[in-house]
Amino acid sequence: MIKIEEVRKSFGNLEVLKGIDLTVDKGEVVCLIGGSGSGKSTLLMCINALESIQSGRIEVDGIDVHAPSTDKNKLRRKLGIVFQQFNAFPHLTARENVALAPRHVLGLPKSETNQLAEHYLAHVGLGDKLDAYPTQLSGGQQQRLAIARALAMKPDYMLLDEVTSALDPELVGEVLDTLRLLAREGMTMIAVTHEIPFAREVADRVAFFHDGVIHEIGPARDLISSPQRTRTRDFLGKIL
């Protein structure tokens, strides 16, 4: 379970998160929607301690993420994260990209990490690209590679930050299909997305961010079909 309580976060004088409360249960898919600059990416990075917080508390399976005593590198093994930019490591093949963290973070032997890599690459439909370098892959393939790389650490949670936003429209579908697959398998996910139909279909709950707070949250279908608050309605009206 991920438990976010009263989280505040500033960059210098700019307060970006102004008291966020959100609890995500095991197996749940929560989509975060909202305008650019509303703090969605920042929240994801606070959840896996890539950013610090000023006050409040974030717990992942009972571990206080921002406690000084928490081993952040170890904590991040529980939390896979995929970003909007394709972050494939360009100097490594697809197989090596996926095997890297299991090899050096978990210390698994090479034979095992290669198997892991082959398994997860096949899982996201890249079974025939094992030895390809990222420059030889399309954007959609690179993004699926990033997902496979995160999965190979066998995380309990996946944090997804607009993973389809930088893709050409015709490549969005293949990445969304991969996310659907994860959802079917019961992966707990917090996904920032602008793909509203996808959110309605896959998410259990949707949270609408506005100006550093969760302005409205509810079951996906309800929030998207009949938003209760004006700002949510305006935002959905603009984006749909």
Binding site: L50, R76, G80, F83, Q85, N87, F89, A101, V105
Partner: peptide
Amino acid sequence: NPSQGRAALGLGMTPLQVYARVIFP
């Protein structure tokens, strides 16, 4: 790209590992 380091940290690598295996090459 600075996001390379972020992605590597996100996989649980230590800053030293990130530097040696992702940034330096």
